[in-house]
C-alpha cells in the first residue's frame, strides 16, 4: 500500500494546528453564544467519563494481574457483599448524574428560549433543499444572518421530517410537517458555516446541505439590498436560470441531459412525453406550470412520484421565468 492510497493524514494535522476559535480535538469551532456553554458541559462529562473509565479498566487490569489463576484454585476469603460499599457506589454516581442533568437542563433552556427581539427567518425544508424566507419577502437557499444579533428560525417541512443542524452553533432541531418548530442562535464570529439535514429523508438526504453566512450588520444590510434588486433589468430566461439553481430544481433536474432523480430539462420543450398515470402529453408552458404546482399529476415514464409541490413557494412570475429558461435549453 503506497502512502498515497491513504487519506492524507497531513490534512488532519493541518487543521489541528490551525484550529479555529474554540476548536479542540473533540469538537469543531464555536460559532454561537450557546456553543461555549455546551462545550463546557461536554468537556465536563468527558472528564468524568475518562476518570471512571480509567478507574474501571485499571482495577480490572490490576485484578487480572494480581489474582491470575496460578495453581489449583485456592481463594483467600473475600466478602460476598458489603452494603456500605454498595451504597457508596450508588450514591456517588447518583450525585454526579444529578449535576450533569442539571447543567444539561440549564443550558438546554438557553438553547430553547429565544430572546423576544430576535430577527426572524422562516425556514422551509423539502426534499432535498433548504429555503429561507426573509422578512422583506425574498427567498434564499443560503442562510444569511447578522452578527451578534439573536436570529430566530421558524421552521416547517413540506413533505417528510427533516432536521436542521449547524454544528458550529451546536444547534439541531427537526422540521415536522404539519406543525412549526423553532430554534434560535446568536452568531459570534463572521464567516461561513455548514448547515446539514440530520433527519433521514430519503435519496438526497446527504445532499441536503447548505451554509450559513454570518455578516456584520453593514454587510447584512447591503446583502438585503442586493437581494431586493437581484432580478431587476434581467431578461426572464436569465432570472429563470438563477431560480433554477437557487430554488433547488438543479438538485434533481440536470440541464445537460444527465438523468438523475428527475428527468433532465435539456431539449424537453416541445417534445411529447409518455407518463405513468396520464396519456402522452406535449411539454408546453401549461404542462411545465402543472408539473411545478402539482407534480404528481403526470409522472414521467421511468421516474418516481418524488417531487414536492412548489405551490406557495414560486410566484407566477417566477414560474414564467423558469419556463423561459427551459425553452432556451436546446
Amino acid at each position: 500500500m503506497s502512502p498515497t492510497t491513504l487519506p492524507p493524514i497531513y490534512h488532519w494535522l493541518n487543521t489541528s494546528l490551525t484550529a479555529a476559535a474554540g476548536q479542540t480535538f473533540w469538537l469543531p469551532e464555536q460559532g454561537s453564544t450557546v456553543a461555549t456553554s455546551v462545550d463546557r458541559l461536554f468537556h465536563f462529562i468527558l472528564g468524568i467519563s475518562i476518570f471512571f473509565f480509567s478507574l474501571i479498566v485499571v482495577l480490572m487490569v490490576i485484578f487480572v494481574l494480581l489474582y491470575r489463576r496460578r495453581t489449583d484454585v485456592t481463594n483467600d476469603p473475600a466478602p460476598l457483599h458489603n452494603t456500605k460499599l454498595e451504597i457508596t457506589w450508588t450514591v456517588i454516581p447518583l450525585i454526579i448524574v444529578v449535576i450533569i442533568f442539571y447543567e444539561g437542563f440549564v443550558t438546554y433552556m438557553d438553547i430553547r428560549t429565544s430572546p423576544s427581539q430576535a430577527y426572524e427567518v422562516h425556514v422551509i425544508g423539502k426534499k432535498w433543499q433548504w429555503l429561507f424566507k426573509y422578512p422583506d419577502g425574498h427567498v434564499d437557499e443560503v442562510l444569511h444572518v447578522p452578527l451578534d444579533e439573536p436570529v430566530r428560525l421558524l421552521m416547517s417541512s413540506e413533505d417528510v421530517i427533516h432536521g436542521l443542524a449547524i454544528p458550529a452553533f451546536r444547534i439541531n432541531m427537526d422540521l415536522v410537517p404539519g406543525r412549526y418548530t423553532y430554534m434560535w442562535f446568536r452568531a459570534v464570529e463572521p464567516g461561513e458555516y455548514q448547515l446539514f439535514c440530520t433527519q433521514y429523508c430519503g435519496t438526497g438526504h446527504s445532499d441536503m446541505l447548505t451554509k450559513v453566512v454570518v455578516h456584520t450588520r453593514s454587510d447584512f444590510e447591503s446583502y438585503l439590498k442586493r437581494e431586493a434588486n437581484a432580478f431587476k433589468d434581467l431578461p426572464p430566461a436569465k432570472v429563470g436560470e438563477i431560480l433554477y439553481t437557487r430554488r433547488g430544481c438543479a438538485q434533481c433536474h440536470s440541464i445537460d441531459g444527465t438523468v438523475s432523480t428527475g428527468p433532465s430539462f435539456k431539449g424537453i420543450f416541445g417534445q411529447t412525453h409518455e407518463f405513468l398515470n396520464a396519456p402522452p402529453t406535449l411539454v408546453d408552458e401549461n404542462f411545465i406550470r402543472e408539473s411545478i404546482l402539482n407534480p404528481s399529476a403526470k409522472i414521467r415514464q421511468g421516474f418516481r412520484d418524488q417531487m414536492p409541490t412548489y405551490k406557495g413557494i414560486l410566484k407566477d412570475e417566477e414560474i414564467t421565468n423558469i419556463i423561459e429558461f427551459i425553452k432556451t435549453l436546446k
Binding site: G104, V106, I111
Partner: peptide, 15 residues
Amino acid sequence: LFLGALATNVPLHNT
C-alpha cells in the same frame, strides 16, 4: 451521559 444530558444531546442527536 453525553446523550442523556439535554444540552449536549442537541448537537450530537442524529450524528
